[in-house]
Nucleic acid binder design. Structure first.
Length: 83
DNA sequence: CATTTGACGCCAA
DNA sequence: TTTGGCGCCAAAT
């Protein structure tokens, strides 16, 4: 069985272009609807470019953060019309 | 086992 | 609408 972080990474990697999920949604898909905290923590430590972590945002619509610059994340989201 | 950290979520004021 | 405060969980120490 994959670790919680492996599930999260897999789910995030499956996000298609133009699609966006919230940390809570990712946590729910990972099996723990209340582990949204851990989700953010995992993504922050993950520097794998294969993971479109910029497609994961907060429930409020805020970007949250990005390991390569929040501006980049905002730009990508606006460009893809994911938000 | 106890604490700390962190890209969160929700509610009250 | 904006803050502050509390609760939540996984991994690291």
């Amino acid at each position: 069985m994959a670790s919680f972080q492996e599930k999260v990474l897999l789910i995030v990697s499956r996000i298609k272009k133009g699609q966006v999920l919230t940390y809570k949604q990712v946590a729910q898909l990972a099996g723990n609807p209340n582990a949204f905290r851990a989700v953010g923590n995992i993504l922050s430590k993950n520097y794998n470019p294969k993971i479109p972590c910029h497609r994961v945002i907060r429930s409020d619509g805020a970007i949250g953060g990005y390991n390569r610059g929040e501006k980049k994340k905002i730009f990508l989201l606006k460009k893809e019309k994911a938000i």
